[in-house]
Design a binder for these strands. Structure first.
Length: 528
DNA sequence: AAAAAAC
């Protein structure tokens, strides 16, 4: 199946081919013809399935006819986060290149002035987060009586975030006669109810079973004491072949702390969470996209839907509270048929969270050991208040020997991280029992390569940078990787289908950034 | 337990 068979016009097809795509993803193949016919669509699809283009492409086609009047937008797309809204706007820019569509991005944290000015001029496409949208409506800057197409994206997340009342209110302001496209990764009863309420005789499209991570993502779990977590992370960053990575924390505060820590250790990292000013959020995300930042330390604001091509790794510095968020987080890698690796660092008290995740994804996450670090057991009992936090056995002893420094000079977390000397040059190895029980699995598990294990980072041979290779060379390199992937899949006996392009990957995705390396190797493990 | 979103 080719894009040219879906009923899209030559201008859109031209824009698509310039980006390098030839083959639609399953959801695009199924949804685009229906949307072009003016039908409602209920799409059950995770991000990373090509969902965004499945509505932007036909919308560009439909909106090409007619013209918007002042303050009367012709279509409305609702997104749960500002970053996702901006990403959809980018999509319209890219594929609407040969159409003159006016677009307005209505998100919080940016000045009203520009957004209002755009509305005055008349927009074809309105892309908004609910809060700012309602605000502008109440100020009288938007008339919704001309909306012909409504898109509700990430409905289940809107539910999680408490946006449903806002959504119901906005939809109540729209004309009853309209086309509605409704997307959600999962279909809990509450979402189903909304879909029934908003859609008329929709075509239902399901492309990936919810809560199943893509087969292209290799997962692993390291258990470590809380105070060792940063050391484990640094160790993984240095032993893994990390090109770039999302690093998720559960709390905004910890995003800041970890970002500082990694920066002090010479890693090229940025931070992203919802309390940062919007301009900084946009700037950081762009820098990560462009590759001028290798590591993005972030909260769950970036867990869902953020689509950055060719991210090699995801690290869960904290085990997510919500098991579904785990699936979303690790879905930032292994996209578009490329492989990715996802490591989760769990503290002993995270046992129940890990259990919930493993239950959701229906399998155990393979464990890895970090050489030179004591690996505690996960705990599964109720975590009562006042219960003693699990501690390393050697903690007291190391405490005496550690370099003296005024206690008040540092936050408690960073002091704790100083206490172990071993670790930075050690390697992650699989749990022995796992190897003994299933030898064929251990071969492809997330163990660091042997030649990398006990040499310091700067002694390792430089990895070839793919950018410098001639085109043909790159292609053959990828073909090899494809074969490798198939072999590994066979060994895995993993029957989950691969979502994406298979081996037919557009050239631009193969463009790789330089490998991530600490700018300077820390000479001690000190935080300073 | 947290995060997200309007000023």
């Amino acid at each position: 199946m080719q894009f040219s068979e879906l009923g899209l016009g030559p201008e859109v097809l031209q824009a698509i081919s310039e980006v390098g795509y030839t083959t639609p993803t399953p959801i695009q193949e199924k949804a685009i013809p229906w949307v072009l016919q003016g039908r409602d669509v209920l799409g059950c699809a995770q991000t990373g399935t090509g969902k965004t283009a499945s509505f932007t492409l036909p919308m560009i086609e439909i909106l090409a006819q007619g013209r918007a009047r002042a303050r009367m937008p012709r279509s409305l797309i609702l997104e749960p986060t500002r970053e996702l809204a901006a990403q959809v706007a980018d999509n319209f820019e890219i594929y609407g290149k040969y159409h003159k569509l006016n677009m307005a991005l209505l998100i919080g944290g940016e000045s009203f002035g520009d957004q209002v000015k755009k509305l005055e001029r008349g927009v074809d496409v309105l892309i908004a987060t609910p809060g700012r949208m309602i605000d502008l409506f109440e100020r009288g800057n938007i008339l919704l009586s001309d909306i012909k197409i409504l898109v509700i994206d990430e409905a289940d997340r809107m539910l999680d975030m408490g946006f449903i009342p806002d959504i119901e209110r906005i939809v109540g302001l729209l004309p009853k006669l309209r086309q509605t496209l409704f997307f959600s990764a999962t279909m809990p009863p509450e979402i189903r109810r909304l879909a029934d309420q908003f859609l008329m005789n929709p075509r239902e499209i399901t492309v990936a079973p919810p809560a199943s991570p893509a087969a292209t993502v290799t997962q692993a779990l390291a258990v470590a004491y809380d105070e060792d977590k940063r050391k484990v992370l640094r160790h993984l960053l240095q032993t893994e072949d990390v090109k770039n990575a999302f690093i998720f924390c559960n709390r905004k505060k910890d995003v800041g702390i970890l970002h500082q820590s990694l920066s002090r250790h010479g890693f090229n990292a940025g931070a992203l969470h919802g309390d940062m000013v919007q301009s900084k959020r946009t700037e950081t995300l762009e820098a990560f996209k462009q590759g001028s930042i290798d590591l993005l330390v972030c909260s769950d604001v970036a867990a869902r839907g953020i689509d950055i091509k060719g991210v090699s790794h995801v690290f869960n510095f904290d085990v997510p509270f919500n098991a579904e968020d785990y699936v979303h987080r690790i879905g930032r890698t292994g996209r578009a048929g490329l492989t990715g690796r996802a490591f989760t660092i769990a503290a002993p008290e995270d046992g129940r969270l890990v259990q919930a995740i493993e239950k959701l994804i229906g399998r155990e996450i393979p464990r890895v050991l970090i050489d030179g670090l004591e690996t505690p057991e996960l705990e599964f009992e109720e975590s009562g208040r006042g219960r003693r936090r699990p501690r390393r056995k050697d903690e007291g002893r190391k405490e005496e020997g550690r370099k003296s420094e005024p206690r008040s000079a540092r936050p408690p977390r960073s002091r704790a991280a100083d206490r172990t000397e071993a670790g930075d040059s050690a390697a992650a190895t699989p749990v022995p029992e796992e190897r003994a029980a299933r030898p064929e699995r251990s071969e492809r598990s997330v163990r660091a390569r042997p030649e990398r294990t006990d040499r310091p980072v700067q002694d390792r041979p430089e990895r070839p940078v793919r950018e410098d290779r001639p085109r043909e060379d790159r292609r053959s390199r990828f073909a090899d990787r494809g074969e490798d992937r198939r072999r590994r899949r066979d060994e895995d006996d993993d029957r989950t289908p691969v979502i994406g392009f298979g081996d037919d990957v557009p050239a631009f995705i193969l463009r790789a950034a330089r490998p991530v390396r600490p700018a300077a190797l820390p000479d001690s493990d000190a935080e300073g």
